[in-house]
Design a protein around this nucleic acid. Structure first.
Lengths: 336, 336
DNA sequence: TTGTACGCGTTATCAA
DNA sequence: TTGATAACGCGTACAA
């Protein structure tokens, strides 16, 4: 079933059918009615490939999400969708593996969909450095700071992860904690992992609190199991700690379970602080203390920036949005 | 940059360039070398739209995932991906809103990608009833039983949700519980919600345990907040219950928090049982008791069924896979 | 208001 | 081994 069949069926020319299907003016009400009826009846749909092939430029906006099981990203996508819904742009959301190359994927989608702009949820600096030069439409990276890179069509919206981690650790210190353990990502592989770790270190050093990377830090995957393993390993070394900072809520959740399995209570024996501000955290017992990334705000700003770049040719920019420290039930003052 | 430019640049004809790009035989080594070099240099990529437009049939398999923030589906997608990776078929994964129409979306993607087959993760019977007739390639619905529908190209792989719920409630009764509350989905809108609820009722009736739908059941959204609200509402009526069954793990987690906020401990005061078997559940304190859907098994079977339908023209079938009851820390015997 | 005809980038057929 | 060329389904000048 093609536009041609539809033309033959209704007695009109393909051009008229096309005009009706694309809501063009200059079509008689009668023709519109007849053709629409035929469309309904046959359940006809335009061939997207032919359409895009013809229309060199599409009008869509693309969202590339790195990681399918990231709750923060789910919240962001939801927000972005409702934002974009208020504009005339169609939205394509593309999910890919945590360890796939998001820039290469975007490059491919650019050829396929010819979008007006791209929102990246998450992203690796190395990948951008290597291949982003080939992308020439406005792009915004959300949750990761890309200001170190100097592309004139690449913006970013993020919190200051380093500063956020410093604040988180500061708050634990303010409560009286002096013995720390930290679970985070691979500092070598991920910028996120590295900068968050540095924030912790700055705070600890600033307060002259001893911290031995070998013994007090564990680099793990961003997952429940990763957090569990990290905490378990930390406990096995026998080092005492009254506060545990995890660079992601999922890690914190895994870690709490590991603590419990070793007979430690949260927060009575160990205070635990996470990072991300997942919705889940507020339903846990104890409610998870965390550094919240403002999903709504990041979604709103990233969409605004992208649209103004597309429509008004605004310059790229790197924006830092405020984070929030949510001190909830999983932390307390250390035991005497 | 098109195949034409590449032809002009290398002095060969478009046909030769196309042959090289598609690894066809009958191309001289020299031509292949010259053209590949030009491709490398220019970073050329085929226009997917033109390609698909020309090649009426693609060789891909499509996965349509209903709901982006469903952990069970994330686990399934991961499994399916590793399954399919062992075949020669490319895999497209498409995520859509929980309340979008997955069949319409699939219809659209059929025109776009012309896949060989489709795996649906989740699905609404009404949507299939209305529009599935227009899809003529092999499809498998995972997690939902579609045997009521009679399409010869539609299979399904699922657990017996009704039976699973009956077992879950049975196990609570076996522990000595006699006062029940249930939180589930909208029974009118979702088959899943309805059949799970029926399973509970059967068990309760079978043991002559009184259950007042008005007072002891709450229909909520499949979310943490939904579960929280449901449990809170149940408590507000003042009805006593020692066991709470939630038709999804996320609901159970929300419900547990609501119980705590009302001074009730789990499992000492109320035993809570969930449904799905999310990875998260094993990291919670207390570990969540649940009816586990075997993600690995469902993924494997659904892929096997789809492939054998595609390759050998096997008939559609509706398969029921075994569930597992995981009795963990969130349940115990009722207080005296 | 409607119709004709061309071209988008690719693959495949046929002839050279 | 190569090249010329006809489709694929659609949108849109341009003509009527």
């Amino acid at each position: 079933m093609t536009i041609k069949d539809l033309a033959a069926k209704t007695g009109y020319a393909v051009a008229t059918v096309s005009r009706v299907l694309n809501n063009h003016p200059n079509v008689s009400d009668k023709a519109r009615k007849v053709i629409m009826e035929a469309v309904e009846e046959s359940g006809f749909q335009l061939n997207a490939n032919a359409k895009q092939l013809k229309q060199q430029h599409a009008t869509s906006i693309l969202v590339v999400v790195k990681g399918t099981s990231n709750e923060l990203f789910s919240e962001l996508v939801e927000s972005i969708q409702s934002q974009i819904a208020q504009t005339q742009y169609p939205l394509y959301v593309d999910y890919l593996d945590e360890d796939s190359n998001e820039v290469r994927r975007a490059l491919q989608l650019c050829r396929e969909k010819k979008p007006l702009g791209i929102l990246f949820l998450g992203g690796n600096t190395h990948n951008f450095q290597a291949d982003f030069g080939k992308i020439d439409i406005p792009c915004v990276v959300v949750t990761n700071d890309m200001s170190r890179l100097d592309f004139e069509n690449l913006s970013s919206v993020s919190i200051d992860g380093k500063e956020a981690c410093r604040c988180a650790v500061d708050s634990l210190i303010a409560k009286g904690h002096r013995q720390f353990a930290v679970i985070g990502g691979e500092r070598v592989l991920s910028d996120t992992g590295r900068s968050r770790y540095e924030g912790c270190l700055e705070s600890l050093r600033g307060h002259n609190i001893p911290f031995d990377e070998e013994k007090d830090y564990r680099a793990v995957r961003f997952s429940y199991q990763g957090g569990y393993n990290g905490a378990r390993d930390l406990l096995e070394t026998g080092r005492e700690f009254t506060a545990l900072f995890a660079a992601a809520d999922v890690m914190a959740i895994g870690a709490i379970r590991a603590l419990r399995d070793n007979g430690l209570r949260v927060p009575e024996d160990v205070s635990v602080m996470g990072f991300d501000g997942l919705e889940l955290g507020s339903f846990l017992v104890p409610q998870l203390s965390t550094v919240a990334q403002p999903a709504q705000v990041m979604a709103r700003r990233s969409v605004e920036m992208l649209i103004s770049q597309i429509e008004d040719g605004a310059a790229a920019a790197h924006e830092t949005v405020p984070f929030a420290l949510w001190e909830r039930e999983s932390i307390s003052e250390p035991k005497q």
